[in-house]
């Protein structure tokens, strides 16, 4: 997926994807957000996730590491650690070519609901979505779990999350004196 360089609005590290999604919606930004995982311990941390927006509502998702688009790209960009997020403004006309690619599209509420785990933000996003895009919760239910299912199919990533948690648990048990109280 190729996009012209947009105008950088903001660039910072966030602990989870909710914050930039909420900000895009609040400011009704037309443009794109680039998510770059900060934790390189995870296998899928290679590459960046890109989500485009029209008036603050997500339209397409793409991951440069996996070269996948649509709901699976949201799964690819999901990591437990912090992200470096850059938000760019870009004209709707420049976004049009990628917005026309159906395989890249995600339902408007899916990033907030499934990637950020925030149903209230997902509902606000769906309400802000223009007519012609699936807006009601029911309308996008057919593929609504798509990102979650793609995440669950990524056995390597899940093994990495579990392994990292196990190491953390052992290390912290020692720090917290849980081994000898």
């Amino acid at each position: 997926m190729r996009l012209p360089q947009g105008r950088l609005l903001k660039s910072r590290v966030v602990s989870d994807p909710r914050e930039p999604l909420a900000e895009m919606l609040d400011r009704r930004v037309t443009g794109y957000a680039v998510f770059e995982p900060q934790d390189s311990l995870l296998l899928d941390a290679d590459g960046r996730g890109v989500v485009t927006f029209t008036d603050g509502v997500p339209v397409v998702a793409y991951h440069t590491g996996s070269d996948r688009g649509g709901p699976p790209a949201l799964a690819d960009l999901a990591v437990p650690g912090p992200y470096h997020v850059s938000i760019f403004e870009l004209d709707a006309a420049d976004l049009a070519p990628v917005h026309d690619v159906e395989e890249l599209c995600v339902p408007p509420g899916m990033p907030a609901e499934r990637l950020a785990g925030d149903p209230a933000l997902a509902d606000s996003t769906r309400r802000a979505a223009p007519a012609g895009r699936p807006t009601a919760a029911g309308a996008e239910s057919a593929d609504d779990h798509g990102a979650v299912e793609a995440f669950l199919e990524d056995e390597e990533k899940i093994s990495a999350i579990r392994e990292q948690a196990r190491q953390e648990a052992k290390q912290r048990a020692a720090e917290w004196g849980l081994n000898d109280t």
């Binding site: 989870d16 949201l74 799964a75 999901a78 437990p80 609901e113 499934r114 990637l115 950020a116 785990g117 779990h145 990102a147 979650v148 995440f151 669950l152 899940i158 999350i161 579990r162 948690a165 196990r166 953390e168 648990a169 052992k170 048990a173 849980l178």
Partner: peptide, 21 residues
Amino acid sequence: LQPTIPAISDGLKVQEYATSY
């Protein structure tokens, strides 16, 4: 859990902590 990526990821972490302990 909820059927979201962060809830399932965090649930997996809980499981790994639990079984480690």
